[in-house]
């Protein structure tokens, strides 16, 4: 069983909601990202989504775009992201990490090389935003061969028939996109999301987590109530944006950047 599966199964058995923060690798620097990842684990993150920076993130809103621009300006490559992962893994063998990004950097590295690299550095899952199931066969097979989960999104616009197909190829967890739009936009009404999630519930045993638009304790509570967990991205990335890029941040500042994750964990544990 994959580490991702183990962690989510255990959480669900214990009645614990999954808390999944997203941050961009290398924003503002690889060193700071590593510190943030350990801090997030302390704060109560169950899984970490680690963004591979890309120059043209067309599914993301301005906050994550700017995070990616900062990471690229700092020279972060996909190989650097794997090195960061290796360092994180040497100190933390337990917390699953999912790489999230766009296909082009992976295409340029080559699927074989990418699979080898992510497998060696201890990545647990891969989510490629612009790779729908129909275009995913090759990469998905390769990742499956090395026990890495491929995670897919389901959107409000996804038909039930298509959702069924997605649940058949998705592993790890199913990521429900709460809204029509880009990351960081305003959350739509909870009732329609609830309806959609219960439709999905009937299709899969995978944990269903909700992302896009979750930016405070209130939305964490509302969305976790109707799902197995939540992903917090833009809100965390905008807190990280306040950190110094020069590596002179204090541990206090690192803690401040992840305050929302602690608050979310506290609220979920009540």
């Amino acid at each position: 069983m994959s580490r991702l599966r183990e962690v989510s199964d255990k959480a669900l058995t214990d009645g614990r909601k999954l808390l999944i923060p997203y941050l961009v690798a290398g924003d503002p620097s690889l060193g700071v990202t590593e510190k943030l990842m350990h801090q997030l684990v302390q704060d109560g993150a169950d899984i970490i989504e680690l963004g591979i920076p890309f120059s043209d993130p067309s599914s993301d809103g301005p906050v994550i775009q700017l995070g990616a621009e900062r990471a690229i300006a700092a020279g972060t490559s996909l190989i650097d992201v794997c090195d960061l992962m290796r360092r994180f893994r040497s100190k933390n063998p337990a917390t699953p990490v999912v790489l999230m990004g766009y296909l082009n950097p992976i295409e340029l590295m080559g699927y074989e090389e990418f699979t080898k690299n992510v497998s060696e550095c201890g990545v647990d899952g891969v989510l490629v935003v612009d790779m729908p199931p129909t275009e995913s066969f090759d990469l998905r097979q390769r990742l499956q061969d090395v026990d890495i989960d491929t995670i897919f999104l389901v959107a409000p616009t996804t038909s039930v028939e298509r959702a069924k197909l997605i649940t058949q190829v998705c592993s790890g967890y199913l990521y429900y996109v709460s809204l029509k739009g880009v990351t960081g936009a305003a959350l739509s009404d909870a009732n329609s999301i609830r309806t959609r999630v219960s439709q999905l519930r009937a299709l899969t045993k995978l944990p269903i987590v909700i992302g896009f638009g979750i930016k405070d304790v209130d939305s964490v509570l509302r969305m976790s109530e109707i799902s197995d967990g939540v992903i917090i991205g833009s809100a965390l990335v905008s807190a990280i944006a306040k950190l110094s890029p020069h590596g002179d941040e204090t541990s206090k500042e690192i803690e401040t950047a992840t305050q929302l994750i602690r608050d979310a964990r506290d609220a979920l544990n009540v």
Partner: peptide, 12 residues
């Protein structure tokens, strides 16, 4: 070619 867009746009 192909279709490489986020899930939200697939139905469109």
């Amino acid at each position: 070619g192909g279709v490489f867009v986020g899930e939200t746009l697939i139905s469109a």
